[in-house]
Simulated assay, not measured.
Amino acid sequence: MQTLHTIRELRERLDQAPARPVFVPTMGNLHEGHLALVRQAREVAAARGAPVVASIFVNRLQFGPNEDFDTYPRTLERDAQLLAQAGCDVLFAPSEAELYPQPQGYKVVAPAELGDILEGAFRPGFFTGVCTVVHKLFNIVQPGAAIFGKKDYQQLMVLRNMVRQMGLPIEVLGGETLRADDGLALSSRNGYLSPAERAEAVQLSATLRRVQETVVAQRAAGGLSVDSLALLEQQAMATLASRGWKPDYVLVRRQQDLLVPSADDIARQQPLVALTAARLGTTRLIDNLEL
């Protein structure tokens, strides 16, 4: 695997490739969930005769003023070893000065109906930062396909819509959420948890499973409604709060656009997804489960 730090080096390397690469953007501090995306990229790339490119860049634009940009773990040497073992061909690890040689005045803003809800409501500007850096990386790498984890459900939807509306010739693929044996979704921020918090953290996915089980049971009994979903959301929030969490949201939305399901959606058994974000101690975790 080659590790390249400049746009010029990367473009020179990819100019020699027989097909457009399959791309996995990351912020580093890699875990098994990231590596599963790289292995998925390896399978897609093998069918196309294309290289696998991963990037590591901690993107200042998507961090709020009180978030963990300065303390976010930078583990490039370890990450490079893991990427090589997972089948990555090229690691692009630019400096901030390389990717943002001047203040990034031009930005990509997601439409409010998708970008300002859920994560966008609690992290203003987050999706502008994500869309801007990913669009820039797409312009640099010129991939034929890119893979993002479904754990960041809203992010995957935002980026798919961006690619479609911008007419980018890139296939955006989702990778399934990987979980620890106890059900906790793998996340770089899990490393911030104390041992006691790590033991409690499983309650986030357990809460989603209870929502899922209740929705399935109510559907089977014909009792699922807009009101029963609202009550279920309130109960899930209260349960987390009673255990010492500070939940931002536990919501059930339509899979297709993350809008609130209507009575007609429920009657037609429109596919739904439960999404949650909550803070345990100083660590904010997110998760989702399709219903």
Rank of each mutant, 00 (worst) to 15 (best):
P21N: 12
P21Y: 11
V22S: 07
V22E: 05
V22H: 00
F23D: 04
F23S: 01
F23N: 01
F23M: 02
F23K: 01
V24N: 04
V24I: 15
P25G: 10
T26H: 08
T26C: 05
T26S: 08
T26P: 01
M27Q: 10
M27F: 00
M27L: 13
M27Y: 02
M27A: 11
G28D: 07
G28V: 01
N29E: 11
L30F: 08
L30W: 06
H31C: 12
H31I: 08
H31P: 10
H31F: 11
E32C: 03
E32G: 11
E32T: 13
G33E: 06
G33A: 07
G33C: 09
H34T: 04
H34P: 09
L35S: 08
L35R: 03
L35D: 09
A36F: 11
A36E: 14
A36K: 04
A36S: 15
A36W: 05
A36H: 09
A36V: 15
L37P: 03
L37Q: 04
L37N: 02
V38A: 11
V38S: 06
R39F: 13
R39Y: 07
R39L: 14
R39M: 12
R39W: 08
Q40T: 14
Q40D: 15
Q40Y: 11
A41E: 03
A41W: 01
R42G: 14
R42A: 15
E43K: 10
V44K: 10
V44Q: 00
A45M: 10
A45D: 07
A45T: 02
A45S: 10
A45W: 02
A46I: 04
A46E: 07
A46W: 06
A46G: 11
A46S: 14
A47S: 15
A47R: 14
A47V: 06
A47T: 12
R48W: 03
R48P: 05
R48S: 14
G49H: 06
G49Q: 08
A50T: 07
P51G: 13
P51Q: 11
P51S: 14
P51A: 13
P51T: 04
V52Y: 03
V52H: 02
V52A: 05
V52S: 05
V52E: 08
V52G: 03
V53R: 02
V53H: 05
V53D: 04
V53M: 03
A54E: 00
